[in-house]
Structure formats: C-alpha cells, structure tokens
C-alpha cells in the first residue's frame, strides 16, 4: 500500500477585467468543493487572504486585460503558474468589457466622469494610486501565453468541474456538447 501523502496541487485564481461571475460559477460546483480541496491547496485568490502569489501548478484567470494593474497581475501569474487557464469569455476574447473598444477611451471617460447625468464635482480621476486604463480591452492571450481556454459567460460549473478533474487526473480534456458555450 502506498502510504505517501500526495502533495496537493497549488492553485491561484484572479479576476482582471472580470465580473467575478466565473468565480461564482466555480463555487457553483457546490459540495464538490469539498472533493476539490482534497486535491488542491489555494494560493493567492479572492477566496483567500494571500496578497502575493507563490509558485503554483495552476492559475485560473477570469476577465480580460483593461488596465495597467491587470497587465502586471497577469504577468505575475504567468511567471508563477506552470499551467495558466483563460476562464470565461472576457479572458478568452475580451468579452462584454471589450465592447468599449468601439469607442475612444477619452469618450468613455468623459461620458462616465464629466458628461454623465447627475454628476457633481466632475473630473477624470487622476490619482497615481489608480491604474491607468489601456486604450483597448484585450484577451489575456494577447499579453501572455495561455495553456487552456474555458469559454462561457460564465463557463458552467459542470464545465469547470470537467476541466479541473480531468486536468488533475492528467487526462486529455474533453467536454460533452452541452458543456461548451460562448454565452
């Protein structure tokens, strides 16, 4: 009998220009979360208090790249994760936030902070504490190399479960027809 304790895989997650819906869909695996924590240990993720990412086996990225901080976080994740996954439509192709690419960034900012209805003390926020927006929203594969893509807005809990269990088992990943959708 093999009594060695198998080291758990370390997993980090983050949300860039995302809505946290993909994280909610991950939590939608419900009681299977208990099975999951038997297999993985969480590093930096919105679900833990860890502020800086350590070396991980798997990084799950939700959201596209919309500002300078997103770029920095994404590059840090790529640096520390052996396998990096684009989770959800935003990470895969920019998603809904990329609809702002149809407009000039200055027009978006002026509409939100200067011309919008009911605003007072108008002005575009310019504190250096705030990350600057990029001129366009980008899918994450335009910034770093991505190993797997999991489409959906959000991907269903079942699709996330299929992906995680087959990846953790070292199997080739195959989805049933109903688990893959882009919407």
């Amino acid at each position: 009998m093999d009594t060695r304790v198998r080291p758990k895989l370390r997993v980090a997650t983050t949300s860039l220009a995302g809505c946290f819906g993909c994280h909610m869909s991950l939590l939608d695996i419900d009681e299977r979360l208990i099975d999951l924590v038997e297999l993985v240990e969480l590093d930096r993720t919105p679900l833990t208090d860890i502020k800086t990412i350590g070396d991980c086996d798997l990084g799950l990225i939700e959201g596209g790249v919309g500002n300078a901080e997103n770029v920095e976080v994404l590059r840090t994740f790529r640096h520390h994760c052996k396998v990096l996954v684009a989770v959800g439509a935003c990470a895969v192709n920019g998603g809904i936030p990329a609809m702002r690419n149809s407009f000039a960034l200055s027009d978006c900012l002026e509409e939100a902070y200067i011309d919008g209805v009911g605003l007072y003390n108008q002005g575009i926020p310019n504190d250096p504490e705030l990350p600057l927006l990029l001129s366009q929203v980008h899918p994450i594969h335009e910034v770093v190399k991505v190993d797997y893509f999991l489409p959906g807005c959000p991907p269903s809990a079942d699709a996330i479960w299929t992906f995680l269990t087959e990846l953790l088992a070292g199997k080739p990943i195959g989805f049933p027809y109903t688990q893959i959708h882009y919407d």
Binding site: V92, P139, H141, F149, P151, Y177
Partner: peptide, 15 residues
C-alpha cells in the same frame, strides 16, 4: 464553432 470544437480565438482580435 461548437461542432468543430473551437475553444479559443487563437489570433489577435481586430476589434
């Protein structure tokens, strides 16, 4: 795209 198993856009978007 579903039928052919397309999971990602691969190329750079034109927007």
């Amino acid at each position: 795209a579903y039928d052919c198993g397309m999971l990602e856009p691969h190329f750079t978007h034109f927007f």
